[in-house]
Nucleic acid binder design. Structure first.
Length: 561
RNA sequence: GCGCCCGUAGCUCAAUGGAUAGAGCACUCGCCUUCUAAGCGAGCGGUUGCAGGUUCGACCCCUGCCGGGCGCGCCA
């Protein structure tokens, strides 16, 4: 509808250019907006405001000329000029019917588009290291990353969801030493407990499992405990597999799947880290200082140079990071998006600098990043502090069990990701009815309920019949609801374009609210057969949009509640 | 000190550069012999942190302050 109106305006402008009202070199960018106030019609354009100067006319006069030149359309009932020179469009009843027909025909594809044209996008998210179970921060990453993935799929992209994790390095040593200490019966109070050891209860569970000789399987590996407390290498492998398995359970409970699990260790094993270092040296961006090898990342906008190889000969984490992203580049994705916590934002400059220094033809701003800010968990009016080392822990699975998967996903994805998030666990749990996700799901269930009642009444509805009588939707509320449904595709497009999944949640809440209001004021199952069928058809369209939108959020659309 | 993010109603949050800044919670008051009251309606509540600037028009863009979070390691 928006596009249709823009086309009408475009035609009008062309004729105004021909008759000399507008200069021949006019380059209009036509914007059609949704109105907030229904007295402003259904859609509005500011075109006259932007062209008034070029036309040497005042905006209201120009608006009148544009309106006079607009071609006739079945979908537009009338136009009005308002305020400083807005052109307000009032859509016709016929356009309402046309839109509902479109939605029913598109069904679960309504709202999707093909902007991505089948191109490949890789989205990396969560990427938690296997040193403990997932917490709410990972949960936010999982919710945002997965919704973003769904949005990209809905807009025609071929999406690869990827999880990268560090299965080598110092913190894995700490993990292995902590488990080994537990295997030997030590406690954190013991003088010989490893420095920087992990104290959480899950370490004890892990140690017991290892000593029992359990076999653990995760999405990408499997390992059996050797029951030998002196086998540090075995403990290391077992611990990684065990915690990856735990994370798999967390993600499964959350309804998030990955296509690829990428191990940092594979970069070492396949010589990718060495090769990256060699290329950087060959390209002349490195130097030795104080026994370490440095990369001149300041050549690429970093505020200080970075150590690549430490005096002890080991590489800093950032080298495999660069090697990993080089690998992504070589895999030929059209677009790469990294979703990660804002506490790692400083890696962005570094990784991009390293990639530039490889002289591989990688664009400067590559790859894209979507950051999410911290999430604070509140319980009993106080912040729940999370610390792996201290052992105070609230896992993502705890949250899901307490609050429910749908509510947790919705809550974590429904807020703009670059704002801090307050997750009030008491509110989400004890007053779950206040949670917006139930409000939206209830709207969906209500539509289903109407159809159950229809069957009870031994009445029928079918799509073909319904589509014949849509002109019976004469109420203003029905027209406004339909226009809201018509906005859905543009919301999906925008959410994908600007990578803000929360826009879907906001839209769905508004739609649910409009529907609840309508439901309370107008009865659907009226005696008048045609009117009943028309309203049922509208209800089906609403159900489609609610279900499609909830699906993008990874939230279920229940038939009854 | 430097970098990134945030600052909107008592609280939690919305708002493609558009017209009178919106919801929920809380508080006050109404609506269930009628399709699920997990709902609806009405009221209360604002100098969008402050000051400039750009624009026909700014919560939104620019500059400078103030306040908060995060990051500034030869940890990841």
């Amino acid at each position: 509808m928006k596009q249709h109106i823009a086309d009408l305006i475009s035609t009008a402008l062309t004729s105004l250019i021909e008759n000399g009202t507008l200069p021949a070199d006019t380059q209009p960018s036509i914007m059609v907006e949704n109105t907030r106030d229904k007295s402003h019609g259904d859609f509005a354009s500011n075109i006259a405001l932007t062209l008034a100067k070029a036309a040497r006319s005042n905006p209201r006069e120009l608006s009148q000329k544009i309106c006079a030149a607009l071609p006739a359309s079945d979908n537009v009932e009338k136009t009005e000029i308002a305020g400083p020179g807005f052109i307000n469009f009032f859509v016709s009843d016929a356009s309402t019917g046309n839109l509902i027909k479109t939605i029913l025909q598109a069904n679960n594809r309504y709202g999707r588009n093909n902007d991505g044209a089948g191109k490949k996008v890789q989205i990396e998210f969560v990427s938690a290291n296997p040193t403990g179970p997932l917490h709410i921060g990972h949960g936010r990453g999982a919710a945002v990353g997965d919704c973003l993935s769904r949005l990209m799929e809905a807009t025609g992209w071929d999406v690869t969801r990827e999880f990268y994790y560090n299965d080598a390095g110092q913190q894995i040593n700490n993990l292995a030493l902590s488990v080994q200490a537990r295997c030997k019966g030590l406690t954190p109070e013991d003088p010989s407990w490893p420095e920087n050891g992990y104290r959480g209860d899950y370490i004890t569970d892990l140690a017991n499992s290892f000593m029992r000789g359990d076999t653990v399987e995760s999405a990408d590996q499997s390992f059996t405990g050797t029951q030998d407390a002196d086998d540090l290498e075995g403990i290391r492998h077992f611990a990684v597999a065990y915690l990856r398995h735990e994370q798999d359970l967390d993600l499964k409970a959350f309804g998030v799947d990955f296509d690829v699990y990428f191990l940092e260790s594979s970069l070492y094993n396949e010589g990718k880290v060495e090769a990256t270092v060699q290329t950087l040296i060959n390209n002349g961006f490195t130097y030795e200082d104080g026994g370490a090898l440095w990369l001149r990342t300041t050549d690429f906008g970093d505020d200080k140079d970075r150590v690549m190889r430490k005096t002890d000969g080991g590489y800093t984490y950032f080298v495999p990071d660069v090697a990993y992203h080089m690998n992504k580049w070589q895999r030929g994705f059209d677009k790469v998006i990294n979703e990660q916590g804002a506490d790692h934002h400083s890696t962005i400059t570094r990784v991009r600098a390293g990639l530039q220094a490889l002289n591989a033809g990688i664009p400067k701003g590559w790859p894209d990043y979507v950051l999410h800010q911290m999430a604070t968990v509140m319980r009993g009016g106080e912040e729940v502090k999370i610390s792996k080392r201290a052992g105070s822990y609230l896992t993502l699975r705890d949250l899901i069990e307490e609050v429910g998967r749908d509510a947790t996903r919705f809550f974590l994805a429904a807020r703009k990701s670059d704002s801090h998030l307050n997750f009030d666990i008491d509110l989400a749990r004890s007053e779950s009815a206040d949670n917006p996700v139930y409000y939206i799901q209830y709207a969906h269930a209500r539509v289903c309920s109407i159809f159950r009642k229809l069957a009870e009444n031994k009445q029928q509805w079918d799509e073909a019949t319904g589509l014949q009588v849509l002109e019976r939707l004469e109420l203003e509320s029905e027209k406004r609801l339909t226009i809201k449904l018509g906005r859905y595709p543009e919301v999906v497009k925008r959410a994908a374009d600007v990578r803000e999944p929360h826009l879907i949640a906001t839209y769905l809440y508004e739609l649910a609210s409009d529907f609840h209001t309508y439901y309370n004021s107008e009865k659907t199952l009226v005696d008048d057969t045609d009117l009943r069928n028309a309203r049922l058809t509208l209800a089906v369209a609403i159900r489609h949009v609610l279900a499609n939108g909830l699906d993008l959020l990874g939230v279920t659309a229940p038939d009854q509640m």
